[in-house]
Amino acid sequence: MSKLLGVAVLGAGHMGADHIRRIDRVVSGARVAAVADPDADRAAEAVAGIDGVTVHTETEAALDAPGVEAVLIASPGQAHEEALLAAFARGLPVLCEKPMVPDSAGALRVVEAEARLGRRLAQIGFMRRYDSEYQGLKRVLDEGRLGQPLMLHCVHRNVSSPPGFTSAMLIESSLSHEIDAARWLLGQEVTAVTVVRPRASSGAPAGLHDPQFVLLETDGGALVDVEVFVNCGFGYEVRCEAVCEAGGVRVGEEPGPLVSTGGLAGREVPRDYLVRFRDAYDREVRAWVDAARRGRVTGPTAWDGYAASVVAEAGVRSLTGGTRAAVSLAPRPALYAPGAAVR
């Protein structure tokens, strides 16, 4: 247990650089052994001052670098399938940021590849499951003292969208966290998606349908509504309220201390997800490192990543077609059956 887990980080952008910092300075039991990014200068900048790191522009070169025993994938979503399959071929445990694979066909190929191995290697980065407030909400629901959950009301707001962000990406990227959170909190699968568009905000780039209102139906009869607004302008807000038969529970309403000054009282609103979910990311990576050092993989599975991709695709169909879109999942491999042994 004294040996540090050597991690190859794929992607040195905003998310990847933050994970490099986290592994180097926050999480014990691991070290950054290699980093890969098509932009070699960006990769080198991300690991500046960290000893013993090799810098690469190709994924496989980083995976084969000396001392690499695990992989953290923080590259753009379209590169995830190739990286996951390469890690599987080497028997390396993986923490893969969402979306696991943007398209459901590719996500299913990852599921099938891992199922053929007969053991889990991938944990998918749905960090809401590691947030203390969401964990508290999950505990209340699982206790059952409020009765059956009937509805979830969710809000997902960003200050602004990055260049090139499309209307479909509000669902494929932003909504994917709510999709997984709903499945996890309720223990139910999503069966249909309806996307409704109000008029676009004047703060949204031309042609971007923002905000969007999404309704998810589940196989347990619950309804989940989500406001996705990625150019709200004032801060990063994530909230969730569960309405049950005998009560309700809300999270995400008080991000910081209440400050009174100049005749006004207010709380600071975080500017991005790395601030709001900083502790959740720390706990997520720490849990992954601890499990990997013991030869285990826990947390959200490749099946969870696949299910999120299928639901997101249905959401895009509803967005473009203007109608309710049904969700159809492939048969679940035994490796991902509820209660299956973690290996």
Results as ranks from 00 to 15, higher is better:
2 S>K: 15
8 A>N: 06
8 A>Y: 01
10 L>T: 02
10 L>I: 15
12 A>E: 03
13 G>H: 03
19 H>E: 10
23 I>R: 03
26 V>H: 01
27 V>W: 02
27 V>N: 00
34 A>H: 02
35 V>E: 01
41 D>E: 12
42 R>Q: 11
43 A>Q: 03
44 A>L: 00
47 V>W: 01
47 V>S: 03
47 V>Q: 01
52 G>D: 08
53 V>R: 00
58 E>H: 04
59 T>K: 00
62 A>W: 02
63 L>W: 07
66 P>W: 09
68 V>N: 01
70 A>K: 03
70 A>F: 09
71 V>H: 03
72 L>F: 13
76 P>H: 05
77 G>F: 02
82 E>S: 12
83 A>L: 03
91 G>W: 02
91 G>P: 06
92 L>C: 05
94 V>L: 01
96 C>K: 00
96 C>Y: 00
96 C>E: 03
100 M>A: 10
101 V>L: 09
103 D>Q: 07
106 G>P: 05
111 V>A: 08
112 E>V: 04
117 L>P: 07
119 R>S: 03
119 R>C: 05
124 I>V: 15
125 G>P: 13
126 F>V: 12
127 M>T: 13
128 R>M: 14
131 D>Q: 06
131 D>E: 07
131 D>G: 07
134 Y>W: 15
134 Y>M: 14
136 G>C: 10
138 K>S: 14
139 R>W: 06
141 L>M: 09
143 E>S: 12
145 R>N: 12
147 G>M: 13
147 G>W: 13
150 L>N: 09
151 M>T: 14
152 L>V: 08
153 H>C: 10
154 C>N: 10
154 C>M: 15
156 H>F: 14
157 R>K: 15
161 S>A: 15
163 P>G: 05
164 G>L: 12
165 F>H: 10
169 M>C: 08
170 L>I: 10
172 E>C: 06
175 L>Y: 11
181 A>N: 13
181 A>V: 11
182 A>R: 01
183 R>K: 13
185 L>Y: 09
192 A>T: 12
195 V>G: 11
195 V>W: 07
200 A>H: 06
201 S>N: 01
205 P>T: 06
205 P>K: 05
207 G>N: 05
211 P>C: 11
212 Q>D: 03
213 F>P: 00
215 L>Q: 00
215 L>Y: 00
222 A>Q: 14
225 D>Q: 14
229 F>V: 00
231 N>R: 07
234 F>E: 10
234 F>D: 12
236 Y>F: 15
236 Y>D: 03
237 E>Y: 06
238 V>K: 06
240 C>P: 04
240 C>G: 07
243 V>P: 03
251 V>S: 06
261 T>W: 15
262 G>Y: 10
264 L>R: 15
271 R>L: 15
274 L>G: 11
277 F>I: 09
278 R>E: 14
283 R>C: 01
283 R>P: 00
287 A>Q: 08
287 A>L: 08
291 A>G: 02
297 V>K: 04
314 A>G: 12
314 A>Y: 11
316 V>G: 05
320 T>F: 04
320 T>Q: 11
324 R>S: 08
329 L>K: 06
330 A>R: 10
331 P>Q: 11
338 P>Y: 12
340 A>H: 11
343 R>D: 14
